[in-house]
Design a protein around this nucleic acid. Sequence first.
DNA 1: CGCAGAATTGATACATCTCAAGCTGGGTGG
DNA 2: CCACCCAGCTTGAGATGTATCAATTCTGCG
Lengths: 249, 249
Amino acid sequence: MLLPDNLTATPHECGDCPIRHRAVCARCDTDELLRLEEMKYYRSFEAGQTVIWSGDRMDFVGSVVSGVATLTQTMEDGRTQMVGLLLPSDFVGRPGRQGAAYNVVATTDLVMCCFRKKPFEHMMEITPHIAQRLLQMTLDELDAAREWMVVLGRKTAREKIASLLAIIARRDASLHLVPTEGKLAFDLPLTREAMADYLGLTLETVSRQVSALRKDGVIELQGKRHVIVPDFDRLMEEAGDDSDGGLLS
Amino acid sequence: MLLPDNLTATPHECGDCPIRHRAVCARCDTDELLRLEEMKYYRSFEAGQTVIWSGDRMDFVGSVVSGVATLTQTMEDGRTQMVGLLLPSDFVGRPGRQGAAYNVVATTDLVMCCFRKKPFEHMMEITPHIAQRLLQMTLDELDAAREWMVVLGRKTAREKIASLLAIIARRDASLHLVPTEGKLAFDLPLTREAMADYLGLTLETVSRQVSALRKDGVIELQGKRHVIVPDFDRLMEEAGDDSDGGLLS
DNA sequence: CGCAGAATTGATACATCTCAAGCTGGGTGG
DNA sequence: CCACCCAGCTTGAGATGTATCAATTCTGCG
């Protein structure tokens, strides 16, 4: 509100950065961190703000420090599909590419740790730790994208909703490192429309299926956004997945 | 036919390898290639054979030299979704992971250039050229996966078929480096069922939509598999995409 | 208080699935 | 050489899940 373009936000030392051990810089030693500090700056965004427009030139890459953002692609006639959900520690931007390929939108208040692209690219070439970590993260994202292709291509609306809730619950749990045994609870960082864009559904269908899952006791709701999962295995069954994968993998 | 487990196939020198400049080894110098030669071997598979079962332990990684393979994931009740289409030069396997995450099946006769995993992983750590190239390829695959999420989530059956044909046509054209101006022709490397698994449809719907596109003059068929595209822009329109992207990007 | 964005619920339309019946073409054995 | 066979494919008719259009109800906030 106070800043015209959100150019500054509470700066951190990398040392006490909340995503220090999960982000691209996870493997860097203190010397490498020092060099990163020189090219980094923080930006914050309010819920609803667009971070990057598809096609725009990108002169930075960065990590989500706190908050949630979405990656979406839109067809000419307006149909939109979310293709990524960016949670804290996720990386944004593609080294070696000029323009952005997707829209990036903050769905909650968002803080990003940005690096000027040119210096970062240069550092990637001479710092194997960064390239190695980025490769690892990209492979993980590719796996996640492929899981999501199964959801989009083969699951019913109900299974889709259950799958999305399970994913958010799981990622949320892996942040709050205290495993809340038994019941799980979290806030949905997405509107019904954003959920629909993620799942390839309409917002009406999302609303109906959420109601149905609530009526069937799979989830409980406090308000529209706060979700309680009494039995995670039950949720996984509804998602159509093997119930093997524990909360933390 | 002659070999029990297809352990050998016409070996190449890397020097005259058809995928030399596109595969994971694209950036390697002659010295690095020599070291790769030591850990590499060829395997060939007949159309229909399974290369890897999901969950199996993988002791190799490798590149598709010729032919086509698919990456598929199957739900407990048998619903299956293809999550990758592997064409010549594409990479198979994930360094740093024990088991395979997907089924890999040869859909045509297939030749792979395999590297024993342990030595390859070791070489990746000391050879930035390989890791850099692998990162680039993985980022490209991630982009392709995200494009595919739009297809799965938001396109109609007709648009899905047109999109798949466009993708195969484009990748096929980028192999036969002579751009056949005007008309395009190629062989479908997939059965109707495989196309259905790729697109999140049933094989009947695939068949109907292929017939419809043929009746509307968007494509011509010679037999069931040979496709002729008289007007590529028309096909792109049917796919619901911007008609900007040329054949080669 | 009342407005606006978000969400829910209802009625109907329609695209795709499902089940079922043939068709086609290439390979094989008699 | 032919008849048969069978996987792959096509086509049809009816069922069904989700989209669409429309009306209401929530909820937070100025």
